[in-house]
């Protein structure tokens, strides 16, 4: 009798794990994100072919009503200050060549439209995928004769936020047919499913198997990246994607890789693909 009961309990546990978010109490809210009552954001969409989940869902759906409201109103969204600062940087001359971003690319709002939705991208010269941070650094070094940014420098975050914001509302789609993107995707997938640290958890353990559940006070989302850089209320600051990756890895009690290392670039390629079809939300607001 006792044994049968226990098997039942065990089965229930395993079933919950397998069913992931579907029927659980705290799952994603059934709401729509429309910014300033005019810009519709795609926050749920059918998953791309080969994706382990049926539907991809933005982290916005897992946040509280107050946090969601902040993102829906660009006057209240604290991340918009970084967009403004980024525009200034775009137009500011720096480095020995006496150039700004605008010197080569012209008006940012025109030139940048759609670009952020398609990164990371294969860079043939470097023979690896580039995210916006790496692309900006290449422009600074080669075209402006300026120093590359230090990881997470305030200006790096503001400029990348500005660049990404020019694609707000546009669906994320990366081109995996270029160069060796496919191999990097594969490497990223491996990392996503590899358990790390003393707590022995992989990205998938939390974000694939248990999204929609509370883990202590945190409501687990699918861990999509369409809102990055993201304004985090807890830190009162913009948080870059590689900072977030490192934070999640550290939380498993593991050493974390360097920002922009091959390992995290591969992870960025893979996780960006997992969010295919979601709108760019930058600057998203999260807890």
């Amino acid at each position: 009798m006792a044994k049968i009961y226990k098997t039942g309990v065990l089965l229930a546990g395993l079933l919950t794990a397998g069913m992931s978010s579907a029927a659980l109490a705290g799952g994603p809210v059934d709401e729509k994100l429309v910014i300033d009552d005019e810009l519709e954001i795609i926050t749920r969409t059918a998953a791309p072919e080969g994706h382990p989940l049926d539907e991809v869902i933005s982290g916005w759906h897992y946040r509280t009503e107050e946090t969601r409201a902040l993102e829906a109103d660009s006057f209240q969204n604290p991340g918009m200050l970084y967009v403004e600062r980024g525009e200034e940087i775009w137009n500011t001359v720096e480095g020995d060549a006496g150039k700004s971003c605008a010197s080569c690319h012209g008006d940012g709002e025109e030139f940048l439209k759609g670009i952020g939705a398609n990164y990371p991208k294969w860079n043939a010269d470097a023979n690896k995928p580039f995210n916006l941070e790496l692309q900006v650094d290449q422009c600074r070094e080669e075209n402006m004769q300026a120093k590359p940014y230090k990881f997470d420098a305030a200006d790096q975050k503001a400029l990348v936020t500005y660049i990404k914001h020019q694609s707000i509302g546009m669906p994320v789609e990366i081109d995996l047919s270029q160069g060796e993107m496919q191999e990097w995707w594969k490497k990223g997938e491996e990392t996503y499913y590899t358990r790390t640290g003393q707590l022995n958890l992989a990205c998938a353990t939390c974000h694939e198997d248990y999204n929609g559940n509370y883990i202590r006070a945190d409501h687990l989302s699918q861990g999509n990246v369409n809102g990055f850089p993201t304004y985090r209320l807890k830190q009162s600051a913009m948080v870059s994607l590689h900072n977030r990756f490192r934070g999640c890895i550290r939380d498993t009690r593991a050493e974390f890789p360097a920002a922009f290392s091959d390992e995290l670039m591969a992870l960025e390629v893979y996780v960006t693909w997992r969010g295919t079809g979601l709108s760019v939300e930058t600057p998203a607001v999260r807890q």
């Binding site: 590899t194 790390t196 640290g197 707590l199 022995n200 198997d209 498993t252 009690r253 593991a254 050493e255």
Partner: peptide
């Protein structure tokens, strides 16, 4: 997902 609390069967790259 439950960690093992008294085991050396853990993930890679332990801090």
């Amino acid at each position: 997902i439950m960690p093992g609390f008294y085991t050396m069967n853990v993930g890679i790259n332990v801090a």
